[in-house]
């Protein structure tokens, strides 16, 4: 099944990327993290906005999750 193969390949790539990044110095030095410290650089700076989006899309589309759990916690789908 093609999509499954793609996903499995991607999963291996993810683990490989994690393994590589652990042994090489990817990323900035501690004193270069000023931009990463900005609140808007968090992956989810506005959790209620993200939750609202995911709630709407979960209710109206067949796909869910990705950023987090695919469950909706409601009967809206």
């Amino acid at each position: 099944m093609k999509p499954l193969r793609i996903i499995h390949g991607a999963l291996i790539a993810l683990v490989a990327a994690a393994a590589c990044s652990s042994c090489t110095a990817v990323g900035p030095r501690p004193w270069e993290k000023d931009l990463m410290a900005r609140p808007e650089m968090q992956l989810v700076p506005y959790p209620l906005q993200t939750a609202a989006d995911e709630h709407v899309y979960f209710s109206k589309e067949a796909s869910s999750g990705g950023r987090g759990f695919a469950g909706g916690g409601c009967g809206c789908n």
Partner: peptide, 13 residues
């Protein structure tokens, strides 16, 4: 279900 995640600061930006 599960979510396996990797977060990486690639560069300063």
């Amino acid at each position: 279900g599960f979510v396996l995640g990797l977060t990486e600061v690639m560069t300063r930006n």
